[in-house]
Design a protein around this nucleic acid. Structure first.
Lengths: 150, 150
DNA sequence: CAAATCCCGAGTGTTTTGATAAGATTTGTG
DNA sequence: CACAAATCTTATCAAAACACTCGGGATTTG
């Protein structure tokens, strides 16, 4: 029941972009340095986020990435789903095309996994990048520098 | 965010034991057949459950396993924790000895993972084996046979 | 004693994870 | 126009986790 680094790093990067919103394109290099992530690895992760429309890229010198839409309209769940796949503790209750076994209709454990899935989704979909930025500002206004390092 | 087969198979086995409660020791072989799990693999899983006191073993011919205490006092969360480790989407919010980074106090993502962890725990700890057996009986009293095959 | 059963440790093939490397393409700036 | 700063693409790879598999030993019943 662990998240991989894909989801963790990806959310870090998205938070970083939200924090630096309005300052023009942010380079992967700067994100990788601030968040202490391998730049090349982050490249792979952000490729998925770009295809999903969560970020837009600006190529060439002084290029980088910007959020695909307002932070208030990007939920943590959106980011996690792109990087980790559909939320589901087991495949047979996957949010999209669940691979059910023949006994699914009479399966007691399945109902448990559905509840787990729903409770995770509810948490992740109730938090937006805007919420995260506001929380960070609230947490410690004097130590803003540190907050960028999730 | 997937459960491994350890948690799934283990819960199946525990449910099976709860269903056959009061019928004397249940052999691993019969559980493995009913639940369609490799017997040797199940052996490894149940070893952990035994060490945790969730099941008791009866050695020798006609031996097997029985639940360590009443089904009403065994929560799904107890089983999952034994087989999958402490519930935590990331290590830094582990239920026991979390390995925090230096920035934990000012970490915005951390609070998200805490919420996810708590919501998972709440679901898993709110369901007991007794609940599962009752649910199974309710689901389809005419097809009791199938229900044993989670 | 033999069969049934639990117990234990080691080995194995596959998949996932978390990178790393090399090079191609795009574009602002001197 | 040349160059440097970026993104983009593809390939490769080592380590760890996963899901078994196997072999043999210990214990109890009939």
């Amino acid at each position: 029941m662990k998240l991989s680094t894909r989801g963790r790093y990806g959310l870090k990067a998205m938070f970083d972009l939200a924090v630096h919103m309005g300052e023009g394109p942010v380079s992967l290099k700067s994100i990788a340095e601030r968040q202490d992530i391998s730049e090349h690895y982050l490249e792979q992760l952000i490729a998925g986020l770009r295809k999903a429309g969560l970020v837009k890229s600006v190529r060439g010198a002084q290029g980088g990435y910007v959020l695909g839409r307002e932070p208030a309209k990007i939920r943590v769940g959106d980011v996690i789903r792109v990087l980790e796949g559909p939320i589901a503790p087991v495949d047979c209750v996957s949010e999209e095309d669940p691979e059910c076994c023949a006994k699914a209709e009479h399966c007691v454990t399945r109902t448990i996994w559905e509840k787990v899935r729903d409770s995770i989704s509810e948490v992740l979909d109730s938090i937006t990048l805007e919420d995260m930025v506001k929380d960070a500002e609230k947490m410690d206004t004097e130590r803003k520098y540190y907050m960028y390092y999730i």
